[in-house]
């Protein structure tokens, strides 16, 4: 079972890295999304996979029954999903804004930061 998950995570991460290496802004973003879901899956598997009962204390009892699931990895994943969602939506908005102002999502067209204060800009007068 673990091996199946391992291959699934590996495949997903591979796709994520491949998309991340692209020049297209949206593909980069989707690559990030794939990588972070693969990571969530990794945490899930790392937390241990077993057939267990839900970690809920039954009425009348004071402690958890034996063989219940570990709730912590799920809490971690939930946190990671929420944070990842916020960041990816922010990044998507950023990409959209850039597309509107630069007119392209290709990173090869995004040269404005590099041009700002470039040392190779010969127009500036040297010691006039």
């Amino acid at each position: 079972m673990n091996l199946v998950y391992a291959f699934a995570i590996a495949a997903q991460m591979g796709c994520g890295v491949y998309l991340l290496l692209s020049r297209h802004g949206m593909r980069i973003l989707i690559g990030i999304v794939l990588l972070s879901t693969a990571t969530n899956l990794l945490i899930f598997v790392a937390g241990g996979l077993r057939f267990t009962a839900p970690p809920v204390i039954e009425p009348g009892l004071q402690v958890l029954a034996a063989e219940t699931a570990n709730a912590l990895p799920q809490a971690l994943i939930l946190t990671a999903i929420v944070i990842g969602f916020a960041l990816v939506s922010f990044a998507a908005a950023l990409m959209l804004k850039t597309y509107r102002s630069v007119g392209s999502v290709l990173t090869s067209d995004h040269v404005d930061a590099e041009a700002l204060g470039s040392p190779f800009d010969r127009e500036a007068p040297r010691n006039a």
Binding site: A86, S89, F90, A93, L96, K97, R100
Partner: peptide
């Protein structure tokens, strides 16, 4: 607030 901040910005665009 957080979601709408983003959603309104995108819709306005």
């Amino acid at each position: 607030g957080g979601v709408l901040c983003l959603v309104f910005r995108l819709y306005e665009g």
